[in-house]
């Protein structure tokens, strides 16, 4: 099953490689990983998407907690949460296809943020499945480039992951 593990970690050099190293050393898989500092510059927030049996996920969270730099973590998949991913897509356009692409972008509530004679750059956020659906809506060869941030997430309700 897919799990989204959200981690508060000391903003130290090497902290990211401790997490990445743990996953490769123990053979756990990482589907995506995002990391950036929080409002407290001494802490980073990491969102890690992984999958595995309940036993493996239990080991992953225990092993992550064991890392000295990890301050706190939660498995967002255990409760109600919101999940968003940012995607930038560069799409081939021509005189004939421009309108059609723009309609697609509108349907998916994206934004066109760069335009040339032969291309659009589209910005879109949402759940990963929505971004997948947008990409699948185009013919093969019409997409020049896809850049995705990987999902980040936050739990619903008042409670939060903080010190």
């Amino acid at each position: 099953m897919r799990h989204i593990i959200s981690i508060l970690i000391e903003n130290e050099s090497g902290a990211l490689s401790r997490v990445a190293g743990l996953f490769s050393a123990r053979g756990y898989n990482i589907e995506s990983l995002t990391v950036a500092p929080t409002e407290d510059s001494s802490l980073s927030r990491m969102t890690l998407v992984t999958s595995g049996s309940d036993e493996i996920i239990e080991q992953i969270t225990k092993q992550l907690n064991k890392l000295i730099d990890v301050v706190k973590l939660i498995d967002l998949a255990e409760s109600a949460h919101i999940e968003r991913e940012l995607m930038l897509v560069k799409i081939k356009t021509s005189h004939d296809t421009r309108e059609e692409v723009k309609r697609m972008v509108d349907i998916f509530r994206g934004k066109i943020i760069d335009v040339t004679a032969n291309s659009y750059v589209v910005e879109m956020t949402g759940q990963s499945s929505k971004l997948d659906a947008f990409i699948h809506g185009f013919e093969e060869g019409s997409i020049i480039e896809v850049v995705r941030s990987g999902p980040t997430g936050i739990s619903r309700g008042e409670k939060g992951l903080h010190l």
Binding site: S13, G14, S17, R18, I68, D69
Partner: peptide, 14 residues
Amino acid sequence: TVGITRPCVKHNFL
């Protein structure tokens, strides 16, 4: 050294 020893120490510092 920090990189090489990372998987075989409880923790390390530079």
